[in-house]
Design a binder for these strands. Sequence first.
DNA 1: ACTGCCGGGAG
DNA 2: CTCCCGGCAGT
Length: 522
Amino acid sequence: MHTRRLVKRSILGSRVYAPSPTGDGAPVTGVVQAVKQEGRDVSAAGARRSVYTVLMQDGSLKEFSEEEIAAGFNHTAVKGPLKSSLKSPSNGAPEGQKLEGGSLSPEVVEEQRVVDSKRVGRDPDARSVSLLEQKRKVVSSSIDVPQARRSEEEVDMDKVTAAMVLTSLSTSPLVRSPPVKVSEGLSGSWKDNGSAGPFTPSSNSSSGGYWSWSAPSDQSNPSTPSPPLSADSFKPFRVPSLGGVGPGPAGPEDPSLEEQDGSSLLFDEPIPRKRKNSMKVMFKCLWKNCGKVLSTAAGIQRHIRTIHLGRNCDSDCSDGEEDFYYTEIKLNTDSVADGLSSLSPVSPSVLSPPPPPPSPLPSLSQLPDSHRLPQSSDTKEPHGGGSTPLSRSAPSALYLIHTDHAYQATAPVSIPSSSSNSAGSASTSFTPTNSSSFSISWQSPPVTFTGNTQVSPSKSQSFGEQRSQTIAVLSSPPRATTALSRKVRSEGKKCRKVYGMENRDMWCTACRWKKACQRFTD
DNA sequence: ACTGCCGGGAG
DNA sequence: CTCCCGGCAGT
């Protein structure tokens, strides 16, 4: 199991010297594309060596053993026979693209690497190899492969990749927008100015799904101030935590995000253990007395713009104000059979969660009632009672809400105190200065974490980075869900305690498997 | 830090 | 299916 994890970045992407293919002694440089362990499992009598797939200067891919590359480092220019063609442990067509011209998408390389590491390192004879090579040509020429990256760019990949990873981490809600949006929204701006290089947003939309935990919240795209803004004013706004990345590479954020999935596949663990994503994203209008929920950001924006803001013009003239009036919600598609019904656009105003912990939930069916009262805009004064106006909103157990705008985020945060806590604690503890001004301007935002548990703003708040804090809080599911799903930690003795680690074989199987103990249940 | 155990992977 | 383990969350 370790072996799986051993093969890791480090050397990937680094430039190495390698023996010249022509054998004339001049060392050539290349960039390591992949590393694989040879003879790991079966044959090879335990000789575990690494084989590096190197992207050569001329764009071709070769494989080198560890020694060869090491020799190259020392400039001794080993003229040893290149093993690329003979050595390549081929026995299947799929890896064929490997040797062909430098146009390999990272995915291909990655995939090939995986395949390789699983395969038995067989030694084919030269003839069969050459046959295979013939075959490969056909294969590779018929595969639609994106243009190769040049090797200089490859060198920069580390930096860029790191930056992009940071970016994607810090800009959670913005991650990934539908390609269409990207091209239309950005075509004018920074896409042209400079770095169009490796990050053409074209290639594969297929790799998108893995890794993005956040929803496709494209709504900020149309509404963002758009082209004229310089990268300076643009970046800090959306990517606050992006520290010292040069103006150049940091530019093509969005277009590259698609790509980044691919590259992270290459440089990271193939696929970070993926959580099953049963969330569906909807957008909910926050306008007073309007709970309209639409499935697309564009839709909700249009709704707000036309219905509430009374504007008729197209999305072009939007100044982004709509953003303030809707929020993104994630519904748990598993458990919302009934929740969905209340969410559907048909019943726009029927959203009221079972009131927080104290009361035994009155079942969702009586919702419409409680909501009836015209939501006074008094806000923030939590009538200290069961059905405050604020309690209208989502059943927190069913779906999570998180807003897209950090500034917007402060509002919901100051709210939750209303329903479950008695006034003071939460709100005061959270918003440092002008909490009042904020909470006023947000009329009864349905965003709520009230749930059955208090939001845990108190957990470890350092106001220094309240911004990121809030984001974190917002995007994390309400405790309620986990509390429900996870059993309360049982107190009784368990096998581990009783027998101890040394007597592990005396444990019940469940305990041995780290499952819920079957022997000492309670 | 320790512990219980869920979720998920490997075989 | 069994077996195992990463990682989360409660203590």
